[in-house]
Amino acid sequence: MAEDRLPAKTATIAPHPRLAELRRFADARIGLGRAGAAMPTAAHLRFTLDHARARDAVYSALDPEPLRQLAQEQGLPLAEVRSQAQDRAVYVRRPDLGRRLDPTGADALALLPTGKDVVLVVADGLSATAVNQNAAALLHRLIPTLRDQRRSLAGLVIASQARVALGDPIALALGARIVLLLIGERPGLSAADSLGAYLTFEATPGTPDSRRNCVSNIRTGGLDPATAAARLAWLVNTMHEARTSGVTLPTSTTPLLG
């Protein structure tokens, strides 16, 4: 059998031995070898698998059940809203619609208390997979920490077909001082489950991105939920004291922003 396989094996050209050795130092797809000019079959299929994972993540749906349970356990009021982008095909084409609340959202939000320090929003973004895998674990740590720091919470809002700026009309409707929005980041080939967190002080529709602070790459193998929760709680406190966010937030003492 070994002899039968021989022609197939010699058909591929091995990578430079030194490069193969050094590959462990790099995340890049270096030292793949080649089949003629092309990538060998294994490397080619590995790539298509990673792309398939990323594509599935873009089209994945947010599972609200663990978040509903979490809100109940934590005694947090819950609202479920959606943007004006009715499906994924519209969502990827029309970022403007993903930033606007569907009119039914106002009714859902009316059940939440107003004038609180923080509203928590969980948004699907470009990877509901990231939310499904990381959001509950992060919030389990973050909510008690915020309460220990005596921050009042308006509740938890689950938002679908949502962009980062969908947090702005939510914050405005609730008169919440800080909106902390967790959102699935655009999937890459190396990670399709990366969660981002955006914090904005006194957000209103039209708030520029320069007024936001961001903590990204929250996932297994990236920034773990416990560390992320600590960073976010620190940012909430800093914003609360400085009464601002984004580029004007004094973060010179923080080891936390990256």
């Binding site: 890049a28 797809r29 270096i30 793949l32 490397a43 790539f47 890459g188 080939l189």
Partner: peptide, 9 residues
């Protein structure tokens, strides 16, 4: 390398 830009994703 391998059509994958690991910085710009």
């Amino acid at each position: 390398p391998g059509a994958d830009d690991i910085m710009l994703n």
